[in-house]
Amino acid sequence: MPLSAVKAVAKGQNGVGAFILQCKRLDFHYCDWAGSSRGMNAFIQKRLPQFARENPQIEITVSPRPHKHPVVKGHYINGREKAVCVRNMTTEMILEKASLLRDASGEKLKRVNKPVTSVNESVRGIWSPYHGAQYKI
């Protein structure tokens, strides 16, 4: 039976045709008493309504966490979650952290060494000693 190459079937990729945001929920925790929540409280009052309107696909919850530092938690569709402590941060800094969590994939952070990373298979395929021309020594 002659060998035949595996037929390439189009694979779905996020962003090709459709893009699904990996972050599904963002939790904003604050404290009414602690001074480290001053920026967070201002963010929730002034900046969060606009952020929520800009990202309607993300569920946003706001709840107190008494006598603790303020935290932003992101929940992702791969089941993982990421939390960022935003104590003593200003409104702008907290907005940056919320955007970072929104754009994250939910995967663990990996070191990227190469400038380009491709998700496509090599055109030449993987070399095999049992296929192709037979060399005799």
């Binding site: 929730i44 969060l48 309504p49 946003i60 919850t61 706001v62 709840s63 107190p64 966490r65």
Partner: peptide, 27 residues
């Protein structure tokens, strides 16, 4: 207002957004 929830409820801007849920107590 002494609590942030009271300020949010008084303001009403955050509650007007559909994808936001505000809790007055710890979850």
């Amino acid at each position: 207002p002494k609590k942030l929830v009271e300020a949010i409820q008084g303001d009403g801007r955050l509650q007007a957004v559909s994808n936001v849920k505000v809790s007055g107590q710890r979850v």
